[in-house]
Simulated scan of single mutants.
Amino acid sequence: MKIAVFMGGESSEKEVSLRSGNAVLKSLQKQGYDAYGIELKENNQILPFLENEYDLAYLVLHGGNGENGKLQAILDILGKKYTGSGVLASAISMDKKRTKMIAESIGIKVPRTFDKIESINTFPVIVKPVDEGSSVGLHVCNNIEEVKKAVNVVRNPIIEEYIKGEELTVGVMNDRALGVLRIIPKAADIYDYDSKYKIGGSIHEYPARIDNKLYKKAMKYAEDIHIELGMKGISRSDFIMKDDEIYFLEVNSSPGMTETSLIPDLATLQGYTFDDVVRIVVETFSK
């Protein structure tokens, strides 16, 4: 079986994708798989899927067309096997607003969303892109003027209530939660891009030392979202814990696999190494 690891792309998360992709490729080759890497360029995202030979496309693409279902649709048309969620689940999970609506419909608490600037009646609020990850373009706004400035620079913005609390994340692999991790940013009040991807930018506490009932609730919420959206393989749901309540923020259909990423940490709670996770993904999607 020949495996092509697709990475890069056109989104603001391209550099993270390259780091994740190279880590996955290194693991595959170390484990004896016939694998090679393909970097998607901004102006050449379709031809690599047509021109290269592979039995399984291992997708390590974050944001943009790699995570919104468009490239998954191409692979479906080609009849190629690929890792991760399919077209519909990818498209829905990429839209933070739509995902929150679905989460709320199955009984999961979410921060309030404001459709118009004029409707904001509490501060601070968060302004962020509705369809980007890695905390790219995230703004904490304390007044209307700051909101207006943020909305002008953020593409497809979503405005939501800023709930200050403990940052939690839960990984799910093949419909089962791996565990709960608490994120403690070192230099920032919020888990921003630098906190995520700079080595030492945050402390990862896993398993999270929180109330057992809340731990189980976060696990269940992540599984429920994964299953309700029809996600496949690995997903990662982010939450805020405040006043003994869990609030869902977003779910990632293609979580990072870098040296500072959260899924590899969470996998250890089930006894899995990084190589184990990569192998399980291959075994799941090559059938």
Rank of each mutant, 00 (worst) to 15 (best):
F6L: 07
G9F: 04
G9Y: 03
S12M: 05
S12Q: 10
K14W: 02
E15A: 11
R19W: 01
R19D: 02
G21A: 05
G21E: 03
N22F: 04
L25R: 01
L25D: 04
L28T: 04
Q29P: 07
G32H: 04
Y33W: 12
Y33I: 14
Y33R: 11
Y33V: 14
Y36W: 12
I38M: 12
E39Y: 05
E39V: 15
K41D: 11
N44A: 10
I46G: 07
L50G: 02
N52F: 12
D55R: 14
L59W: 06
G64Y: 00
A73H: 06
D76R: 09
G79H: 03
G79C: 09
G79Y: 01
K80T: 03
K81R: 15
S85H: 06
L88Y: 08
S90P: 11
S90M: 12
I92H: 09
M94Q: 13
K97C: 06
K97M: 11
K97Q: 11
M101A: 13
I106N: 10
I106K: 14
G107E: 12
D115W: 08
S119R: 13
P124E: 14
I126H: 00
P129W: 03
S135W: 14
S135V: 08
S135Y: 14
H139Q: 11
H139M: 10
H139P: 08
C141P: 07
N143P: 08
I144Q: 13
A150T: 07
A150M: 05
V151P: 01
V153E: 13
R155P: 01
N156S: 14
E160D: 08
Y162V: 14
Y162W: 14
G165S: 09
V170W: 00
G171R: 00
A177E: 05
L178E: 03
V180P: 00
V180H: 00
R182H: 02
P185M: 09
K186P: 01
A188I: 03
D189V: 08
Y191N: 01
Y193A: 00
D194F: 04
S195Y: 07
I199E: 15
G201P: 03
G201I: 13
S202T: 09
I203Y: 13
H204I: 11
P207Q: 08
P207T: 05
A208G: 06
R209N: 11
D211M: 03
K216E: 01
M219G: 00
K220V: 02
E223K: 14
I227G: 05
E228C: 14
E228Q: 15
M231G: 02
K232F: 06
G233W: 00
G233M: 02
S235F: 04
R236K: 11
F239C: 00
K242Q: 14
E245Y: 00
Y247W: 05
L249P: 02
L249N: 09
E250F: 05
S253A: 15
M257K: 02
T260A: 13
T268C: 07
Q270N: 15
Y272C: 07
F274N: 09
D276E: 07
V278Q: 02
E283N: 13
E283G: 10
F285R: 06
S286A: 13
